[in-house]
Simulated scan of single mutants.
Amino acid sequence: MSKTIVVSEETIINKIYLIRGHKVMLDRDLAAMYGVETRVLNQAIKRNEKRFPADFMFQMTSEELSNWKSQNVISNKEKMGLRKPPNVFTEQGVAMLSSVLNSETAIEVNIQIIRTFTRIRQMLSEHTEIRLEVEKIKKKLDNQDKNMEVVFQYLDELLEKKDQPKPERKSIGYKINPR
């Protein structure tokens, strides 16, 4: 009887970072979810380098690691093991890991991670549609604002004309001479 491994979606989402414009996961986070040491995961990757092209996995630069640490406010305890920049995996790289780490745990956790990546992609596409609708509304409101400005300019001009002294006008019509 196999024991089902459950990693919460929230846990997975909290371990997905944006680096070089890609949504990626760190080797140490994946190793922890798979229940193996980071070095074991990295050894398996070295034995199967051909399975991990640059669009599946890359190593963070020292500068990226420094930026990542500062953005994520990592405690000293969590910095342990990050003496060198970690390997990071794109969604495709995570999928490839299940074939390299041939264990039931790796397969189950991998399925959960891939489902989470898929949900994130769906949410982003849904949000894109909403964002486009909001942009349309903003454009309409901007046009209305411009039209209102024009109306108020005309009203201001009319008020200025009203406040200006009126020139004396010559009377027209019959003049009645008082006797």
Rank of each mutant, 00 (worst) to 15 (best):
T61C: 05
V100R: 01
K138L: 11
D27S: 13
Q112L: 14
N87L: 12
S62M: 02
E104N: 11
D145Y: 09
Q144D: 14
K77Q: 13
V6S: 07
K15D: 15
T118M: 06
L65R: 01
A106G: 02
E160I: 04
S98E: 05
K170Q: 07
L132H: 11
I172C: 02
L158M: 08
E9I: 08
V100C: 09
V6P: 00
K77I: 10
R51Y: 14
F152T: 05
P85L: 04
G21Q: 14
S125W: 07
L124K: 03
R169V: 06
E129W: 07
K77T: 13
N87S: 14
D27Y: 10
Q112W: 06
E133V: 05
V151R: 05
I111P: 01
A31N: 11
Q59I: 08
L155E: 02
I111D: 10
F89W: 12
M60H: 00
K140R: 08
P53G: 09
P167M: 01
R47F: 12
I114M: 04
P165E: 02
F152S: 09
T118K: 03
G35C: 11
F58E: 00
S66G: 07
S103K: 01
N110T: 04
R28Q: 15
K170A: 09
A54F: 12
K162M: 06
L65W: 00
I130R: 02
K138V: 09
S125F: 10
S103L: 07
N110E: 06
K146E: 12
E49L: 15
K23I: 08
I19P: 07
E49G: 10
F56Q: 03
L101G: 01
I114L: 09
K46G: 14
M25N: 11
Y154I: 04
D55A: 02
T61S: 12
K136A: 08
Q92W: 02
L65Q: 02
P85D: 05
T128I: 11
E78D: 15
V150H: 05
R20E: 15
N87F: 10
N72Y: 04
V100T: 04
K69E: 11
I19S: 13
R121E: 15
Q112P: 06
V7E: 05
E104Q: 09
R121C: 12
E91V: 01
S125V: 11
